[in-house]
């Protein structure tokens, strides 16, 4: 069990913010915390429907700097009680905000369906 193919594991982690505090933002959709640049580069892994990737405007619209607390969700799914309690169980492992202010300003389009 211990030795897993790294590739599999890797795919399920969202890189934590490379900078702490000031430049980091939280996705309003899923509370994922990353830096602005990371959001631009990868979008929000949880909220594909927000289509944040490569869209500065979307990123500044759909993420916020006014969040508080950070949870590093290290175990997938519901093994973590914290993840369960915060309803993060459905998201990938990564850093999340405990709480954030703000709401998605423009109504978010429904998911486009499967790709």
């Amino acid at each position: 069990m211990e030795a897993r193919p790294p590739a599999t594991v890797d795919a399920n982690f969202i890189s934590p913010p490379t900078h702490s505090d000031k430049r980091s933002r939280a996705c309003i959709g899923c509370k994922l915390v990353k830096t602005f640049d990371q959001f631009i580069e990868d979008g929000c892994e949880n909220c594909q429907h927000l289509a944040l990737k490569d869209d500065r405007e979307r990123v500044s619209e759909c993420t916020t700097t006014s969040y508080s607390g950070v949870v590093s969700l290290l175990s997938d799914e519901n093994a973590s009680w914290v993840g369960k309690w915060l309803h993060l169980g459905k998201y990938a492992c990564g850093c999340y905000a405990l709480q954030l202010q703000g709401s998605l300003i423009t109504p978010v389009d429904k998911p486009v369906g499967r790709t």
Binding site: A3, P5, P6, D10, S72, L74, S75, A79, S80
Partner: peptide, 19 residues
């Protein structure tokens, strides 16, 4: 956690960290 996974080492046995 990510680094461990990349190196193929056994993951940490913690589930989350909160600040």
């Amino acid at each position: 956690m990510i680094n461990l996974a990349k190196q193929g080492k056994p993951p940490m046995q913690i589930f989350s960290a909160v600040c």
